[in-house]
């Protein structure tokens, strides 16, 4: 029996055309992601990871191939594929609460009453531990807190797939670790399907069920897919000496730095 993939990439390719010059960024991307799976896409900068995520998000249209979500072609942005943006993208004139509420009002405006929407927003803010800061504006909170709100906003849309574009890239190491733990915790509770872009090997191994490794661009494609056989819940301190963790980490490092070393020109 062939199980139908939840999120399915079929021969996805992307070219950008500038004048008469076309640059092929992505080529022949085939990938199946199951419901509840946490998949990371890793690769050197410029390999088209973010482009791939934007295609799933509907912000870009692939030039060849299609992405299917539950059998439906993805061709426009929508709340069923909520995105956590790298630079949080909060609206500065709204409070923490308002930034989540605007999405909830739009997505559940008909389905839920006003008080139910309020409870829904507060529940998501509690999930990312931001409930006590609900009345602050984005410029009054730290980078890590902003990203928590970005995650709460995305979760509040109850997406089929949560798309995260280097969500921890702009944070310091300590904040990043803290937030990664939160994301693992939330994933364990809600069982979302997650597709995360990253360039951090440890982050990929720690969080993912599978790691998709991209070859270098132009014309980047999937080089290899690594299944991370670590049981959940995972504890970062215990993993440091774990054999499977070390093996996965070594495999990704080997892929990135030996087989697909970034050409020196772009270092």
């Amino acid at each position: 029996m062939v199980t139908k993939a939840y999120l399915n990439f079929e021969q996805v390719g992307m070219s950008f055309r500038r004048g008469t010059l076309a640059t092929e960024v992505l080529r022949d991307i085939d990938l199946r992601i199951d419901e509840g799976e946490y998949v990371s896409i890793i690769g050197h900068s410029g390999c088209g990871k973010s482009t791939l995520l934007n295609i799933v998000g509907g912000l870009l249209k692939s030039t060849t191939g299609e992405v299917f979500l539950e059998g439906q072609v993805v061709d426009a942005p929508g709340p069923d594929r909520a995105i956590v943006f790298q630079n949080h993208s909060l609206l500065p004139w709204l409070t923490v609460y308002g930034n989540v509420r605007i999405a909830v009002d739009k997505v559940f405006g008909r389905a839920k009453s006003a008080s139910a929407r309020h409870d829904w927003v507060m529940h998501k803010l509690e999930l990312v531990q931001m409930a006590q800061h609900k009345d602050k504006r984005p410029h009054e909170i730290s980078g890590g807190m902003k990203q928590r709100v970005g995650i709460a906003r995305a979760l509040a849309m109850q997406p089929k797939v949560l798309l995260m574009d280097e969500p921890f890239g702009a944070l310091d190491a300590l904040t990043r670790a803290h937030l990664q733990d939160s994301v693992m915790d939330i994933h364990a509770k809600l069982g979302n399907t997650v597709m995360m872009i990253t360039h951090d090997v440890d982050e990929a191994v720690l969080l993912s069920d599978r790691i998709v490794m991209m070859t270098n661009g132009p014309s980047a494609t999937i080089g290899d897919v690594l299944a991370v056989g670590l049981p959940r819940p995972r504890r970062r301190l215990e993993l440091a000496t774990d054999a499977e963790y070390t093996r996965c980490r070594a495999a990704v490092m080997e892929f990135l730095y030996a087989r697909h070393k970034l050409p020196s020109r772009a270092a």
């Binding site: 998000g57 509907g58 912000l59 426009a76 942005p77 929508g78 709340p79 594929r81 909520a82 995105i83 943006f85 630079n87 993208s89 609206l91 605007i102 999405a103 739009k106 997505v107 849309m157």
Partner: peptide
């Protein structure tokens, strides 16, 4: 563009 992306994901109408 960030704000436009957010608006696109939550599907704001042109009026909203």
């Amino acid at each position: 563009q960030d704000y436009r992306n957010v608006a696109a994901v939550i599907r704001l109408s042109w009026y909203e």
